[in-house]
C-alpha cells in the first residue's frame, strides 16, 4: 500500500498589524479615510446621473426632445436626439399644406432610419414604398394639413447615428441621434 504524499504546509505567521500593540485587527484608517472621500464622490456622481436622467440627458426626457424644420416650414421633424438601444420611441413628421400635392405626400427616409434606428412601424400605411438612392420612398394619401406621419423606432445598437428625411418639394432635413447602450 503506497503512502499518499503529505500536503504542502507553511508556518502560520501573525502578520496582521496590531492595534495598540494588543489586538491583531489590521485596521488601515488612512485607507478608510480616502475610501470615505471616494464614496462621497461616487454618491455625488450617482446623484448627477439621476438628475441628468430626469432631465433627459440619456434620452426619454425634456432635453432629449429635438425639432428640425425646413426653411419653408413645410415639414417639421420631431425626434429624440438621445435614444436608448432596444427602447421604443416615435419620430414625428408634421406635413404642412404646401407639401401635399394631388392628395399625396411623398417622403424619402435614408436607409439608416431602418438599419441604425430600427424603424419598426410606419403610420399611416403608405400607398407605395420604393427602395433606391440608399433609402426608402413612401407615398401617403393626404387631405389637408395638419398631417402627421409617425415612424416607430427601436435602435438595435449603440453609437452616433445620422439620418435624412425629405418630403418632395421641400429641402432635406439631416439630423443626428446618439444611441445609448
Amino acid at each position: 500500500m503506497s503512502m499518499s504524499a503529505s500536503p504542502i504546509t507553511r508556518r502560520v505567521e501573525d502578520d496582521v498589524p496590531r492595534y495598540n500593540d494588543e489586538v491583531a485587527v489590521g485596521e488601515d484608517l488612512e485607507f478608510q479615510r480616502k475610501w470615505w472621500k471616494f464614496e462621497n464622490a461616487v454618491w455625488v456622481f450617482f446623484g448627477i446621473i439621476i438628475v441628468c436622467d430626469v432631465l433627459g440627458v440619456f434620452g426619454r426626457g425634456w432635453l432629449a426632445k429635438a425639432q428640425a424644420t425646413t426653411p419653408d416650414r413645410a415639414v417639421v421633424l420631431s425626434y429624440e436626439r438621445m435614444e436608448r438601444a432596444f427602447t421604443p420611441s416615435i419620430l414625428d413628421l408634421e406635413i404642412s399644406q404646401n407639401a401635399i400635392r394631388d392628395g399625396k405626400v411623398t417622403v424619402f427616409v435614408s436607409g439608416s432610419v431602418v438599419k441604425d434606428l430600427g424603424a419598426a412601424r410606419i403610420s399611416p400605411q403608405p400607398l407605395t414604398s420604393t427602395i433606391g438612392n440608399d433609402g426608402y420612398t413612401y407615398v401617403f394619401p393626404a387631405t389637408t394639413s395638419p398631417a402627421t406621419i409617425q415612424i416607430a423606432l427601436s435602435p438595435p445598437s449603440a453609437g452616433l447615428r445620422h439620418f435624412r428625411v425629405q418630403v418632395a418639394g421641400s429641402e432635406a432635413i439631416e439630423a443626428s441621434v446618439f444611441v445609448f447602450p
Partner: peptide
C-alpha cells in the same frame, strides 16, 4: 474594505462610527 475599530479601550470612536 478593511476591519475598523469601533470601541478603543472602552471608548467609542465617533469618527468611525459616524462614517
Amino acid at each position: 474594505g478593511v476591519p475598523l475599530v469601533l470601541v478603543d479601550r472602552g471608548q467609542s470612536r465617533k469618527e468611525v462610527m459616524d462614517h
